[in-house]
Design a protein around this nucleic acid. Sequence first.
DNA 1: TATATTTTGTTATTTTTTTAGCATATATGT
DNA 2: ACATATATGCTAAAAAAATAACAAAATATA
Lengths: 208, 208
Amino acid sequence: MDDKNISQAVVARLPRYYRYLGELRDSGIERISSQDLSSLMKVTASQIRQDFNNFGGFGQQGYGYNVEYLYNEIAKILGLDKTHNLIIVGAGNLGQALANYMNFERRGFLLKGLFDKNPALYGKELRGIAVQSVENIECFVRENDIDIAVLTIPKDGAVKTAEILVRCNIKAIWNFAHVDLNVPDNIVVENVHLSDSLMKLSYGIANQ
Amino acid sequence: MDDKNISQAVVARLPRYYRYLGELRDSGIERISSQDLSSLMKVTASQIRQDFNNFGGFGQQGYGYNVEYLYNEIAKILGLDKTHNLIIVGAGNLGQALANYMNFERRGFLLKGLFDKNPALYGKELRGIAVQSVENIECFVRENDIDIAVLTIPKDGAVKTAEILVRCNIKAIWNFAHVDLNVPDNIVVENVHLSDSLMKLSYGIANQ
DNA sequence: TATATTTTGTTATTTTTTTAGCATATATGT
DNA sequence: ACATATATGCTAAAAAAATAACAAAATATA
């Protein structure tokens, strides 16, 4: 895209801004200043202005930011104005939870396929999508314009599946497996390491 | 605990060190230098040494780090040498996934209770634990020495439940709800905002 | 319409985090 | 036992991130 050197820290804050702006919009608020957003979100007004300015000037002096406009601009920055086709690999508890939880569909993330290596699950339907064999991943991804693969399988399978997905020119992998995937730079990997998160929590308890 | 000013960035890296050290240990490696760990983990050796030195000197010049020893020390730092009792509030797909996935038990996180507001689920058992009414949370937490509450419910419920949990002197909340909980400073909150994660991924696609 | 107030965008400063450099201690090899 | 190679812990430097400061622009008010 146009902007080049946006730090990960900034990107990581965007979804939270997006969430707050959405709530403001839903409650009918039309405009907000960085100062007011600051006290609402418990971050500095300066950081808010800096963050937004990484992507251009969305506000107006003396007025502040138009909530609806800013909300939509952030959506565009996050790529939420486009739809993405995704598959879930691993139809166990977590995979099913994500498939069913597809609140994501509202945001343009469309579930197109479900895969598992356990034949007992083949044909089982979730949200109208039948589970099929992991053998089919390669063809399916190529033929159905899949952008995102969600990996909810154990680590060995995740590593192997990632290799297949790379061959299929997948754009991004949402990785719930407890392993670091080694893929080319042009493929986006977003890790959700739940046990890491729980350990951070544990650290917090141990160190008040 | 003893150490005071450990940055969040350092803490966030500890689980990953722990994971790699565990794998090294399991494959029979006895010692490792920061340099070798560096190329394995793709972080600088300097950062590795700095990180560990926040908690004391675990290595030896000319030798490196003893894998088993370091692994155990990090476990202590993360509080994994103690057990924690936890409850899951919200027995929907995600709650069930986490309950069943309790690989966490190996690390000392013991599931003690399951709660939901849907009466249809009452009595349903997961890993030998029966789902009960959210009405019972307060008593249960007080009487069963619960440290951690996992919130896998929608945001409105999460906010209300958090208030109850604060009254019960819960130590930590693992929050999967899409909302920022407002609790006193002495209560640890670890957020897992899956949609934030998915948006970061989306950003990655949009900006290659 | 003029004046005071608000509030951004941007530059400057401070703080935090990461990386580099090196003296010192240990291990290894001859 | 001595010399050489390793590799930490720590200090110093560099880079990145967060915060503060403020001029310029727009709004609100009288």
